[in-house]
Simulated scan of single mutants.
Amino acid sequence: MSSRRRRLAALGAAAVGTVAAAAVAGAVAERKLVGRRRTGEEGDDFGALRSDPVVVETEDGVRLHAEVDEVDPDVAGGAPGASVEPTLVFVHGYALNLDCWHFQRAHFRGRRRMVFYDQRSHGRSGRSTKHHATIEQLGRDLKTVLDELVPDGPVVLVGHSMGGMTVMALAEQEPELFGERVVGVGLISTAAGGLRTHKVLHPLLPDRIMRQITPRAMALLARAPGLVDGARRTGSDVGFLVTGKFAFGTEVPASYVEFVDEMLAQTPFEVLAEFFPNFDLHDKFSVLHAFEKVATVIVCGTDDVITSIGHSRKMAERIRGAQLVEVLDAGHMALMERADQVSSALERMVAAADAHQPGSQSA
Results as ranks from 00 to 15, higher is better:
171 A>P: 11
311 H>P: 02
41 E>Y: 00
39 T>E: 11
200 V>D: 05
63 R>I: 11
98 L>Y: 02
295 A>E: 15
257 V>H: 05
82 A>L: 12
177 L>M: 14
90 F>Y: 11
21 A>I: 10
363 A>S: 12
200 V>L: 12
359 G>K: 13
299 V>P: 15
136 E>N: 11
49 L>Y: 04
299 V>Y: 15
324 L>P: 10
152 D>A: 12
64 L>D: 13
207 D>C: 11
63 R>C: 10
136 E>K: 12
65 H>I: 01
331 G>L: 03
29 A>H: 05
247 A>N: 08
80 P>S: 07
333 M>L: 15
344 S>E: 09
10 A>L: 06
120 R>Q: 05
283 D>M: 09
301 G>K: 02
228 V>Y: 04
315 M>H: 07
234 T>L: 12
306 I>Q: 14
202 H>P: 00
317 E>Q: 14
322 A>P: 13
338 R>D: 11
260 V>W: 06
9 A>P: 01
9 A>K: 00
238 V>M: 08
222 A>Q: 05
140 R>K: 05
96 L>P: 03
228 V>H: 03
198 H>N: 04
336 M>E: 10
215 P>L: 03
267 T>C: 15
264 L>F: 14
284 K>C: 08
319 I>N: 04
89 V>M: 08
212 Q>H: 13
292 E>F: 01
91 V>A: 06
293 K>T: 11
322 A>K: 01
314 K>R: 12
117 Y>R: 00
302 T>P: 07
187 L>C: 09
224 A>E: 01
3 S>P: 06
228 V>E: 14
307 T>N: 02
170 L>F: 07
309 I>G: 09
176 E>I: 10
235 G>P: 12
92 H>R: 04
142 L>K: 00
17 G>N: 02
332 H>V: 11
139 G>F: 12
40 G>R: 00
358 P>Y: 04
143 K>G: 04
339 A>F: 08
231 A>V: 14
